[in-house]
């Protein structure tokens, strides 16, 4: 009788864990799409701060960052603060450092990091119209990535979730 209970408890733990893992894998895809979308929103705002208001970059980054939740807000806020405090760092360094520091919270892939690094390299560097063009280019690239991310999400989100649950059940049956 006791062994029966024990088996029941262990198998539910196994199933619970693997379902959780499955959901975690699925979450990465959900987050990736969300972060890509948030990035695009933030960059559009940055473009208007630069082109229309001529706001100095550190101020613009902090202003955008503080109105956004989550890691993307943090990325903008920290870069802006780093620029306004550590007066000995160039923009691309500050952007790269923050991006590297937040990598474990971001759910982006290598291709997307490359887009962001390239964006950082010219951030604040050229003249009004040039900045706007670069931001426009980055926005298009991010949008394409978002479409890809959505396809992945549709494909894998359900799969990971059910795989987690079914895998758990299979493991429980096999083991016990």
């Amino acid at each position: 009788m006791i062994i029966m209970y024990l088996k029941l408890v262990t198998s539910s733990i196994i199933i619970g864990c693997s379902t959780f893992i499955g959901f975690e894998f699925a979450k990465k895809h959900v987050l990736r799409t969300r972060q890509l979308r948030e990035l695009q929103g933030a960059l559009s705002r940055l473009e208007s701060e630069i082109l229309h208001y001529m706001t100095p970059l550190p101020e613009a980054l902090v202003r955008i960052g503080t109105t956004m939740d989550g890691v993307i807000g943090d990325l903008f806020c920290s870069t802006g603060q780093m620029l306004s405090e550590k007066r000995n760092m160039i923009t691309s360094q500050a952007w790269r450092n923050t991006l590297d520091r937040l990598k474990d919270q971001l759910s982006l892939n290598e291709e997307e990091y490359d887009i962001l690094y390239r964006f950082g390299d010219q951030l604040g560097g050229s003249y009004g119209q040039g900045q706007s063009k670069y931001i426009g280019l980055t926005l298009t690239q991010l949008y394409q990535q978002e479409i890809k991310a959505q396809e992945c999400r549709q494909k894998y989100e359900r799969m990971y979730k059910s795989l987690g649950l079914l895998g758990g059940i299979a493991l429980a049956v096999l083991l016990l």
Binding site: I50, M54, T55, P56, L57, P58, L83, R87, N88, I90, T91, G124, G125, S126, Y127, G128, G130, Q131
Partner: peptide
């Protein structure tokens, strides 16, 4: 080159676009 690059960014407060 790094010095002049950094100097330009610092004098323009990282915002060369604002100093056309």
């Amino acid at each position: 080159h790094d010095d002049t690059n950094c100097l330009l960014q610092l004098i323009s407060d990282y915002s060369i676009y604002a100093f056309d």
